[in-house]
């Protein structure tokens, strides 16, 4: 009888005295659970993905192609216009067409995320400046 009681007391003491252990245990189980859920979510997202990448990949392909073409067209148009105004045909067209090709490649690299956009530069100047507050 006395033995049993002391046993209970001991158990109570263990529960009360080492509450932090029980808490950490609970936290660990929470972390485990969220990890398991995350894994399931990731698997589901991976399963959902092919359908999405199909249409957005098509959109990206169209975008990259048109970015390049636009660069070349704008270069050619500007060069031709300059020739018309200044009478320097065909040098304006040749020069600006080459620059247009370069701009087209730049557009494509930016669209593909290979080069940072030109706006990154503005950030450096405004670092901590008042212009950024809004």
């Amino acid at each position: 009888m006395a033995d049993k009681r002391s046993d209970e007391e001991r158990r109570e003491k263990a529960d009360g005295g080492h509450g932090s252990i029980a808490d950490t245990d609970l936290e660990r189980r929470f972390a485990d659970l969220s990890r398991t859920l995350d894994k399931g979510r990731r698997v589901r997202q991976a399963a959902d993905k092919p359908e999405r990448t199909d249409s957005s990949g098509y959109a990206l392909a169209l975008r990259i192609a048109s970015e390049f073409i636009a660069g070349v067209l704008v270069g050619a148009a500007l060069g031709w216009g300059l020739d018309e105004v200044a009478g320097t045909s065909p040098w304006g067209l040749i020069g600006f067409l080459l620059l247009g090709f370069a701009a087209g490649v730049l557009n494509v690299m930016r669209a593909a995320g290979k080069i940072a956009g030109p706006y990154d530069r503005l950030d450096k100047d405004n670092d901590g400046g008042p212009a950024r507050h809004d």
């Binding site: 169209l62 975008r63 048109s66 970015e67 073409i69 636009a70 660069g71 067209l73 704008v74 270069g75 500007l78 600006f96 620059l99 247009g100 370069a102 701009a103 087209g104 730049l106 557009n107 930016r110 030109p118």
Partner: peptide
């Protein structure tokens, strides 16, 4: 600078032409 300006001008062009 010329390439950057061309690249900027080509944005609305590609947006509208597409």
């Amino acid at each position: 600078v010329a390439i950057e300006i061309l690249s900027f001008i080509s944005r609305p062009v590609s947006l509208s032409i597409r």
